[in-house]
Computed example of a mutant assay.
Amino acid sequence: MDEENKIKQPGEQKGEQKSQSEPEIEYLTEVKKPHRKKSSTAAKSSQKIKELESKLQKKEEEIEHLNKNVAKLKEEVLRQLADKENLRKRYEKEKEDYFQFALSDILSDLLTILDNFERALQSSNIDNQESFKQGVEMIYRQLRDLIFKRGVEPIEIKDKKFDPYLHQAFVTEESDEIDEMEVGEELQKGYTLKGRLLRPSLVKVIVPRQKDAE
């Protein structure tokens, strides 16, 4: 019995030693697990930081690209505004020059008519009424042809119909012989310039007489 006990004791001691060493292994394992988890979390955080840095860099590049586009657009707008202003100034200058030259052309033609007036007034035959009349008629034709050449045309009164756009009533007269308003007499001739009203005709208007109420 004692020998068996002696034989078993080493086994039992080994078993006891094994059971005593197992908690140490479990403890070491428990210590290592948090270390691995911490390392994995750090790796993930580092990866996220790199991704954020990459996204931030892309955004900065996009912002820089947009700023360049804005600068180009601003420069283009300023250039177009400058071109528009230069075009406006050039147009104003050309318009001013056109009217000045057009006016000088008309004045040059009027000087010829003025010369003829002076000749008529200085004529030694001024006592000759027929000669004077012919001189005035010649000047009248020159002036008439001058304005007609510029696109001026007289307003013709057709069928005595009153047109408020072309005619201006200066006086009115009632009549029993008409049923609607009409032009009785032209007091001053009207003119159009290339189809547009330059001056209305000054006329006397005949209107139907109003009958007294019974």
Rank of each mutant, 00 (worst) to 15 (best):
K14M: 11
K14G: 07
G15V: 11
G15E: 14
E16Q: 03
Q17I: 06
Q17Y: 11
Q17A: 12
K18L: 07
K18E: 02
S19A: 11
Q20P: 02
Q20K: 10
Q20E: 13
Q20L: 08
Q20I: 12
E22K: 04
E22S: 07
P23C: 01
P23S: 06
P23G: 08
E24C: 02
E24Y: 05
E24G: 05
E24N: 04
E24D: 01
I25T: 04
E26W: 15
E26C: 07
Y27R: 14
L28D: 04
L28P: 01
T29R: 10
E30M: 06
E30P: 00
E30V: 05
V31I: 13
V31H: 10
K33S: 06
K33P: 01
P34K: 03
P34M: 04
P34D: 04
P34V: 00
H35W: 12
S39I: 08
S40G: 03
T41E: 12
T41S: 06
T41W: 14
T41D: 12
A42P: 15
A42V: 14
A42D: 15
A43N: 09
A43F: 09
A43P: 02
K44C: 08
S46N: 07
S46M: 14
Q47I: 10
Q47F: 14
K48T: 13
K48I: 13
I49M: 15
K50A: 08
K55N: 13
K55H: 10
Q57A: 08
K58N: 11
K58H: 06
K58M: 02
K58V: 07
E60K: 12
E61Y: 03
E62I: 10
I63M: 03
E64W: 14
H65Q: 13
L66E: 10
K68I: 07
K68W: 12
N69W: 15
N69D: 14
V70A: 02
